[in-house]
């Protein structure tokens, strides 16, 4: 039996717990004879993938659930061999081209063309096309997106694309115009709490009955409206404690704790020593594969919580946005993270 995240994933569109309007819409699309290219976007843990898999189920029946993973090899122009993983069922194909970095264009071109040029050999299938899911479409390079553009039109008889991304801002307009945009918003805390409640009942988790709703509410709040995180958190809490009550400490992730400690010490005192400390912390976070933007955001929010003056809050947010841009444009994350903190410290001193 798998993790609860996997176990309680709704397998069909009807079973989804929130955003009924999206479910209805997708169902209508799937049951009509045609199906458009989709661009599904929304924050992590909102249920984009779940909905897409449910839609596929609607399109092709339960056989899509039978997925396997293959290693494909590609050759770049410079004759370098690349390994690439493709998840596929007989009806669909799933790729994460951002794993390839700058070589994603090759994958897009080769793989999609190959799929697009072979027709579905199915006698009684409802649809002649295959669905290709592209994960993390917002990290596709410009080249790859441009390569995608023509394929989407030319081979539209044989493939439908489903792009999944956190934001549409990195997707080039021509692609956006060829897709039907579906926004999957993060569930509200109440919705998260309801789902946690459901899971608790099914797994017969012992929660102190009088505090039940508050406990779940608290966990939902801690997950930051990320359902995946909420479910994992619940499971971890259950494994760590025998009974859940308001007194049981909500598990704090190590990386969050590290950032919290740092900001607390910065709020207390600002000096070069603190900047030195910040550097080691930032390096540590980066080497634990925490994305720089997430670090920046978390630092920013944590700082805002500890700051009283409104003008200072505005200033911090402004600085954060400036440095967020720098992180996007530049490559040396550590420069900008430290720069951000230095500037914030200067602002706080005034």
């Amino acid at each position: 039996m798998s993790l609860w995240v996997d176990k309680y994933r709704p397998k069909s569109l009807e079973a989804t717990d929130y955003h009924p309007e999206i479910a209805d819409r997708l169902k209508a699309l799937a049951s009509s004879s045609d199906f458009p290219h989709l661009l599904v976007y929304g924050p992590p843990g909102a249920g984009k993938k779940t909905r897409i898999l449910a839609t596929l189920q609607q399109l092709y029946g339960p056989a899509v659930e039978k997925m396997k993973i293959d290693v494909r090899q590609f050759q770049t122009a410079s004759n370098r061999k690349l390994e690439f993983n493709v998840v596929s069922s007989s009806y669909h194909l799933e790729i994460t081209p951002s794993d390839m970095g700058n070589n994603d264009r090759v994958v897009i071109q080769d793989l999609l063309k190959e799929v697009a040029q072979t027709e579905q050999v199915d006698f009684s299938g409802k649809h002649r096309f295959k669905v290709v899911i592209i994960n993390e479409a917002d990290s596709l390079t410009r080249d790859a997106q441009a390569a995608l553009r023509r394929t989407m039109e030319k081979y539209s008889g044989n493939i439908r694309l489903v792009l999944l991304s956190n934001t549409t801002s990195n997707i080039i307009p021509p692609i956006k115009s060829r897709c039907l945009l579906v926004r999957v918003a993060a569930p509200s805390e109440a919705e998260v709490a309801t789902i946690l409640d459901k899971v608790c009942k099914k797994e017969s988790v012992s929660v102190v009955e009088t505090e039940r709703s508050q406990v779940l509410q608290l966990m939902a709040a801690h997950s930051g409206r990320n359902l995946r995180k909420a479910l994992l958190l619940l499971e971890a809490m259950v494994m760590q404690n025998d009974h859940l009550s308001l007194k049981t400490p909500v598990i704090q992730l190590d990386w969050e704790g590290v950032i919290r400690d740092l900001t607390a010490s910065v709020l207390k005192e600002r000096s070069v020593a603190k900047l030195q400390l910040a550097r080691t912390v930032f390096y540590e976070l980066l080497s634990h594969c925490i994305p720089a933007k997430v670090i920046l955001k978390t630092v920013c929010w944590e700082l805002l919580r500890g700051v009283q003056r409104d003008s200072l809050k505005v200033e911090i947010i402004e600085l954060a946005s400036v440095f967020d841009e720098r992180l996007s444009l530049g490559q040396k994350a550590i420069f900008h993270l430290e720069g951000f903190l230095a500037k914030v410290m200067v602002a706080m001193e005034q």
């Binding site: 798998s2 993790l3 995240v5 996997d6 994933r9 992590p44 843990g45 993938k49 779940t50 898999l53 659930e65 997925m67 396997k68 993973i69 998840v87 799933e94 994460t96 951002s98 794993d99 994960n135 993390e136 990320n226 995946r228 995180k229 994992l232 958190l233 499971e235 971890a236 494994m239 760590q240 404690n241 025998d242 598990i251 992730l253 190590d254 990386w255 634990h288 594969c289 925490i290 994305p291 997430v294």
Partner: peptide, 30 residues
């Protein structure tokens, strides 16, 4: 497992999945 894998992305792995999974596989005893 593949069914879990399709739900996950690299970024969420380091941010939430692995830290919490690590807690799940190491239960606290009475």
């Amino acid at each position: 497992p593949v069914s879990l894998r399709v739900l996950l992305q690299r970024q969420s792995m380091s941010l939430e999945v692995l830290p919490l999974v690590n807690k799940i596989i190491l239960p606290e005893f009475q």
